[in-house]
Structures are given as structure tokens and as C-alpha cells.
Amino acid sequence: MHPAPSVIIFTTFSGLGFGLLFWLGIGAITPNGLMAFIWFTIAYLAAVGGLLASTFHLGRPERAIKAFRQWQTSWLSREGICAVATLLIMAIYGAGLVFFDTPLRPLGWIGALGALGTVFTTSMIYAQLKTVPRWRHWTTPALFLALSIGGGALLAGQVTEALVLLTLAGALQIYTWNTGDTRLAQSGTDMASATGLGHIGKVRAFEPPHTGTNYLMREFIHVVGRKHARVLRIIALGSGFVLPIVFLLLPFSHIWGGLALISHIAGVIVLRWLFFAQAEHVVGLYYGKR
């Protein structure tokens, strides 16, 4: 799949923003006044900024409002509704803290649940796709959730929780890569089933439909060299999990905390790039590619 910057930025930052809203919602930190205003601004910048970035990959962003209608079948619709509902609820909860110094606890819990729901529905947009066997697996939502809450804990300064969750997310990421690499081959979809010509013999793409490229090839076929993928995976693991964990284990200071956060975000951007770039869409088989 084409690793579009808008979607990478969207999943990385809105994941982080909703992760922070989760910790704020359950009351892990209960700031008030100006501090509350700063915390909520950070969370909303990340969450809303990410959501806005995602509209850049729309062909017709001015009609985005229409996307809330089909929650009965569409995960994208569900995600939009979850995101807006969570942002509204948490805005009220935040206003309670900023202006009245009153935590409206139940509202916070509902908001925290909504934040998890938003991340889950985002991940299901990918995990639902039978056409991308690498994504169609429980590890997709599990990893999105672990990264979001882990990153949120890091941002919220919840050191112990962040240590546990980042370790978990790192392990889950390694497991996801190991099992994901063979999932296309195991899916049973190959050139023989795509063309239905396998009973005659071995199928090879002889001529593509056009001399040039096209939307399908740009959107769905992206081949990362195996060597590069290995290096990038190591970079992502180091920057996303190992370094932040080391920084957190050092005697606490805001500098180490800040570095842990920056390193983690950079790592997540790399692994999101890999998430898209390494995902094989079955339509590539019609072009003799994977």
C-alpha cells in the first residue's frame, strides 16, 4: 500500500492525542486551571491535528461531513462518530477542570472509553480488509491500542505505566512483523486464484493493461526492498521502544522525559510507514507483483 504522509501523520498523532485523552479521562492526572488548559490543548492539537491531516487524502475534503452517516456498516463512519463524540465529551470534562476546578468524573470515564473506541475503530478500518491479509488480524487493533495508550502514558508522564505498555507494544510489534510476513502466502489468494487460470499451468503476467502507471499501481503496489525493511524495523524498534524505555529508567528529569517522547514519536512514524509500505494488497497479483 502507498504510505501516504497524511495517513501516517493522522494515525501517529491522533493515536497519541486520544491516548493522552484516555489518561486524562480516567483521572491519572487531574490538573486544574491553566495547567489543565495546557494539557487539554496538547491532547486536542495532536488528536484534531491528526484528524485534519487525514482529510488531506480525501478527493473531496469539502464533503467530509457526509462521512458520519453509515455507522451501521462502515468502520470509517464509526471512527468519525467516535472521534467527534469523544472530543465533545472531553471538552466538557476539560472545561470543568479549567474553569471550575471540578472533575466531572463519570464524563471523564465515558470520554476515556470513547478515546479507546476511536483508536479501535481506526484500527478496524485496516483490520477489516480481506484484501490486505497482513492487516486482517487481531494484532492490528491490539497494536494500535497499545501504541496509543503507551504513547499517551509517556506524554502524560505516567512513567511506570509507560514502561509496561511500551515493552508490551514493542513485543507485540515484533510478533506482528513475524507473523505478518507470511500472511499473504497463507491467505490462499495468489495469481492462480486471481486469474482462475491455475488449472492450465503456471501463470505469469505477460503484459500490463497500459504502458504507463495507473491509480491502482500507485495506491496498492509498493515494494520495499527486504534489506531496507530490516534496517527500518530495527530503527523503529530502537527509536520507538528501546530508547524511550532507557530514558525512562534513568533518574527522572524533564529532559529525559522529553527525549523519550520525541524518540517514541519518531519510531512510531517509521513503523507506521512500514505498516503501509509493507502491506500487500491482493490486486497487485493481477500485475504480477505483491
Binding site: 500500500m1 487524502h57 480525501l58 478527493g59 462521512a67 478500518i125 484484501t131 491502482l216 495506491e219 493481477y286
Partner: peptide, 14 residues
């Protein structure tokens, strides 16, 4: 249509 491309992602046949 908002041009989100998700339907093209979901179609196995391109």
C-alpha cells in the same frame, strides 16, 4: 462521494 478511497481498498479486483 468524498473520495476516501476505502472502497477501492476493499475491492480485491482493482
Amino acid at each position: 462521494c468524498i473520495g476516501c478511497s476505502l472502497c477501492a481498498w476493499a475491492c480485491p479486483y482493482g
